[in-house]
């Protein structure tokens, strides 16, 4: 009995090397595609609504905001996933916050250096990327348990899914609210002469919420799996 046990323990399990996955395998592509629709961070996972909607009055700041979030989610996922095995479990939130805050400081300084006017427009909302639930949510849910490359893709995917909603909302609000897109006037002057008015209501904050509500409505009526039961 004893001998058999000792022999059992001495046999080392033969390590089968998994074949290397290609960089853009089907599974990795899914990591980017999924958050754009079926598991969109805003409309399905309910993450990261916080710091976003106040910047959606016009398209330009919201595109800048979306890009900043993509950069921060992608790189924070990459960094955390690289060091995930040496982070002590008890202090992981603080480690994560520190890394995210450092990345956001970088983004903030870059924005201040190159697009100062947009950075002024975004005011505190760049700093609020730190507490954007998408970043923390994806770090906890994905990066802590996956390899760096899939985590990086997951970060990009979720950042883009977030950006998609942001750009959609801002396009609706800018077009109906001021007749422009990206600052270019689209509604011709003759319309205004005929008595067309910009919908001033679109510029006010509550409209952003209602538009997101309508986007959720459209998405869920097309994709009935997402409907909540209660």
């Amino acid at each position: 009995m004893l001998i058999s046990m000792s022999t059992e323990t001495t046999i080392a399990p033969i390590k089968v090397r998994e074949p290397r996955e290609p960089l853009f395998s089907a599974r990795n592509k899914k990591l980017i595609n999924d958050p754009l629709n079926n598991s969109n961070p805003i409309t399905v996972q309910v993450l990261g609504i916080c710091s976003a909607l106040a910047v959606t009055v016009q398209m330009k700041p919201s595109i800048v905001m979306a890009l900043s979030v993509v950069v921060v989610t992608a790189f924070s996922n990459l960094v955390i996933s690289t060091i995930r095995n040496i982070i002590p479990d008890r202090i992981r939130i603080i480690v994560q916050l520190t890394i995210v805050a450092a990345l956001v400081i970088l983004v903030d300084q870059v924005l201040k250096a190159f697009v100062y006017d947009v950075s002024k427009q975004l005011s505190v909302f760049v700093g609020l990327i730190i507490t954007n639930c998408i970043v923390m949510g994806r770090l906890e849910a994905f990066a802590m348990g996956n390899k760096p490359w899939p985590s990086f893709l997951d970060g990009i995917g979720n950042g883009l899914g977030y950006g998609l909603i942001l750009v959609l909302v801002s396009a609706v609000r800018e077009f109906f609210g001021s007749g422009k897109l990206m600052g270019v006037q689209l509604v011709p002057d003759s319309f205004y002469k005929m008595g067309y008015f910009n919908n001033g209501f679109m510029i006010l904050p509550p409209m952003a919420l209602i538009i997101v509500g309508i986007i959720i409505w459209i998405q869920r009526s097309r994709n009935r799996k997402l409907i909540e039961l209660n």
Binding site: T43, I210, G213, I216, W217, E228, N230
Partner: peptide, 28 residues
């Protein structure tokens, strides 16, 4: 709102957003 007949795709998250929007208008 649990007792009212909200359209199925709007239930839960969707109606919460729209409610928040309406309350925001009231607060304005």
């Amino acid at each position: 709102i649990r007792y009212s007949n909200v359209p199925a795709p709007l239930r839960g998250l969707g109606i919460a957003f729209i409610l928040t929007g309406l309350m925001g208008i009231a607060f304005m």
